[in-house]
Design a protein around this nucleic acid. Structure first.
Lengths: 216, 216
DNA sequence: ACCTAAATTTAGGTCGGACCTATCGATGTG
DNA sequence: CACATCGATAGGTCCGACCTAAATTTAGGT
């Protein structure tokens, strides 16, 4: 019988069960966190809800924060991938602005349109806020690597790191702003309208510095 | 008898003892952290070394990280204060660049010239790295507040936050770079030379965007 | 179908940081 | 000089992170 899921056609039973176990734990954890708040739920309670041993939870998720923010790689690789896949003739700045405005238009949860419950869960927990900072940090570093590659910069050239820092700073700011307004009870359409304007101002401010940087 | 220290002339015996206790704990903690590493030292060991109860340590320092990084306020207020005290006719960008280059010239520990032992202590400890990220975050927020005040911006004006994000991003980057090179064993003079060049590139990149922003 | 090696889960523990309450002791004020 | 106040202390709970050994499940070969 065909054993593959929609994620990976050739998957053994072992790998399949691992995915199910991970999903099962993550789903119970997310539900509990949204219901009671991240800090009010213990790993033991997650394990009990998912009906696995406490140790199984910590085997799959090295830190408790990863139970709530299980999207490190996609978050981190987003701007780096956007630059890597930019159109010919397009600058890194233009590609990132284009992708961000598109993300706003589609209300992409990963740039902050995650709903009030999720936003509340994060901001109420110092541990999650700290983990999110780490995400942003890793994201800036990934972007710097791509910019260095794409411009053929020498290892000691600070310019790709400066550009990455400025661009990542905008992403951070717009993300925070989206989250903040979500918490304040605004609906997504209103937030999208405002943040769209903010994004144009913010990316526009970098135009003179980065308009012709890393053009493919 | 005159009871004041050099910090506060009118201090009761109670307050004096509090300062001594705090200093005593902090000194023993710093010594132990540099000797054995932050994570390898427990609060109980700090308490034993300082000959106080464990609870006294946690009374003075809410988090263990604060035992090693007892400079939150001065770190956070540095750029905000620089902008607030800038010369007439000077932009926020010019003031921050001037202050940063001066900091490099005097090898100011607070911008990263802290010596290899201290740098090692920080980078070896995820908890301290995370706390440092929080410092940078608070610093950006403080700077944004000052820029909003100084430009008379409306609450919904994103520009002071964009400017603060870009300027704080440079501070972050240059701090990390100074720390990284300190860890790599370079001496302060060499680092100062290199980071000075980096600072000119980084602040210079913002000149077209911020050259005439927040001029006093 | 069986058997073995490898991978995964489990149980039961240690350790340290954060927090709590009640109490003791010193201070400086009335 | 008495006492209200504030800091320090003892002894505890709770939880996340981590460890080891053992039990269970799977994969692949015979």
């Amino acid at each position: 019988m065909y054993a593959g899921g929609m994620d990976a056609p050739n998957m053994g039973l072992r790998e399949l069960k691992k995915r199910q176990t991970r999903e099962n734990i993550s789903n119970h954890a997310t539900r509990l966190f949204l219901e009671r708040g991240f800090d009010a739920v213990t790993i033991a309670q997650v394990a009990a809800a998912a009906q696995v041993a406490k140790m199984t939870v910590t085997n799959y998720f090295a830190r408790k924060e990863d139970l709530a923010l299980d999207l490190h790689d996609v978050f981190v690789d987003l701007p780096a991938g956007t630059v890597r896949d930019r159109e010919p003739g397009e600058s890194a700045l233009a590609a990132l602005r284009r992708a961000y405005l598109a993300g706003i238009a589609e209300r992409n949860p990963i740039i902050g349109f995650s709903g009030p419950e999720f936003a509340r869960m994060i901001t109420d927990s110092p541990a999650l806020v700290a983990r999110l900072r780490e995400f942003h940090d890793d994201r800036e570093k990934a972007l710097a690597v791509v910019l260095a590659e794409e411009t053929g910069a020498e290892p000691d050239d600070i310019r790709p790191r400066v550009a990455a820092a400025q661009l990542a700073a905008i992403h951070r700011l717009l993300f925070d702003e989206t989250l903040r307004r979500t918490l304040d009870g605004h609906d997504n359409d209103e937030i999208a309208r405002i943040v769209d304007g903010y994004a144009r101002v913010a990316f526009g401010a970098l135009e003179p510095a980065l308009g012709d940087y890393a053009v493919r």
